[in-house]
Simulated assay, not measured.
Amino acid sequence: MKAPARTPPPRTMKRHGLELRARLRYLYHGASPLAVRFRLTVVVIDFAIIAFFIAAPLLKEQGRSFYIIDYAIAALLAADLVARIAAYSDWKDWFKRPINWIDIVVLATLLFPAWALNFGFLRILRLWTLLNSDLFWRTVGHRFDNTKVEAVTRALAALVTFIFVATGFVYTSFRGGHPGLVGYIDALYFTVATLTTTGFGDVTLPGPWGRLLSIAIMLVGITLFLRLGQTLFRPHKVTYPCEDCGLTKHDPDAVHCKACGNILCIPDHGADH
């Protein structure tokens, strides 16, 4: 008679758990080539998932196959969230960061697609959380020695995210409310036309709530466009911590810290070329 399988002792299970957490911390926060390649893979998969989110309103007609992909993505994002929590030094502190709660909301819309159908447009927020995450900038952003690329990327992410969130809201809330507002492309066309204050008038939202939403899209859109313009034309700065006061942002040719006057020695990366 075959002996029953023995349950590993608690100490062994705890040791395996600590080893797994150490491995995840190494992959998500390490600086080795293997860790960087792992995070690059995560970023590429994230962009593929975001592309699916953008195309989702056009793919829902596929029926069962759409929901299979939907749940597969939910499993991937759930595994990623659990791994990030395990890799974080203090999981309680992880839950205190609002950007992480946005990822949880995105996951909820994937786990319950039938119940959260009208909130599916919130999934595109994954683009904003990705381009504002430490993981992305530790993996990709370290290639740049100035803050202009980061500022432009963040501003562009905010603008693109707002466009698709607004489009999704218009599509789910006002579809069929105007003869010209039938499909997702119509909602996207209305959002861009309103956001840029072009206002052709061929597609409009009915009622006072539609007018209020149009006003909100115009105001927020103009603000995000101005922010993007400012980051494009503002002189860029480099990241170099001052030894005395800790100020990290300085002009590329700065000799003294603007905050405390300490002498700086900012490396001239352009001199190598």
Rank of each mutant, 00 (worst) to 15 (best):
I85Y: 02
I85C: 06
A86I: 01
A86C: 06
S89L: 01
S89A: 12
D90E: 12
D90H: 12
D93E: 13
W94S: 09
W94M: 06
F95P: 03
K96I: 00
K96H: 12
R97S: 04
P98M: 03
N100L: 06
N100P: 04
I102L: 15
D103N: 15
D103M: 04
I104G: 13
V105C: 13
V105K: 08
V106M: 01
A108V: 13
A108Y: 10
L110R: 07
L111T: 05
F112E: 08
F112V: 06
P113L: 10
A114L: 12
W115A: 13
W115N: 06
A116P: 00
L117S: 14
F119G: 02
G120N: 09
G120R: 05
F121D: 00
F121P: 00
I124P: 05
I124T: 15
L125K: 01
R126S: 13
L127Y: 10
L127N: 10
L127R: 04
W128A: 08
T129E: 09
T129G: 07
L131M: 14
N132I: 05
N132Y: 12
N132L: 03
S133C: 09
D134Y: 10
L135I: 15
L135T: 15
F136G: 04
W137G: 01
W137R: 11
W137N: 06
R138H: 14
T139E: 07
T139P: 13
T139I: 02
V140K: 09
V140P: 01
V140A: 11
G141S: 08
F144K: 03
D145W: 04
N146P: 00
K148P: 02
V149S: 01
E150V: 06
E150T: 09
A151L: 11
A151I: 01
V152W: 07
V152Q: 15
T153P: 08
R154T: 01
R154G: 00
A155E: 08
L156W: 05
L156N: 06
A157N: 10
L159D: 11
V160C: 03
V160Q: 11
V160D: 12
V160I: 15
F162E: 01
F162R: 03
F162L: 10
F162Q: 01
I163L: 13
I163G: 05
F164V: 09
F164S: 07
V165W: 04
A166T: 08
A166M: 14
T167Y: 05
G168R: 09
G168M: 07
F169T: 00
F169V: 02
V170K: 06
V170I: 15
V170L: 09
Y171N: 12
T172W: 01
T172R: 10
S173A: 14
F174E: 02
R175Q: 13
G176R: 05
G177T: 08
P179H: 14
P179Y: 12
G180R: 11
Y184R: 04
Y184T: 06
I185Y: 11
D186S: 09
Y189S: 11
Y189D: 10
Y189I: 00
Y189A: 10
F190A: 02
F190I: 00
T191Y: 05
T191W: 04
V192E: 03
V192S: 02
A193Y: 06
T194D: 07
T194G: 02
L195M: 14
L195D: 08
L195P: 00
T196K: 02
T197S: 13
T197Q: 13
G199K: 11
F200N: 14
G201F: 07
D202N: 15
T204W: 01
T204D: 10
L205Q: 06
P206C: 04
P208A: 12
W209K: 10
G210D: 03
R211L: 07
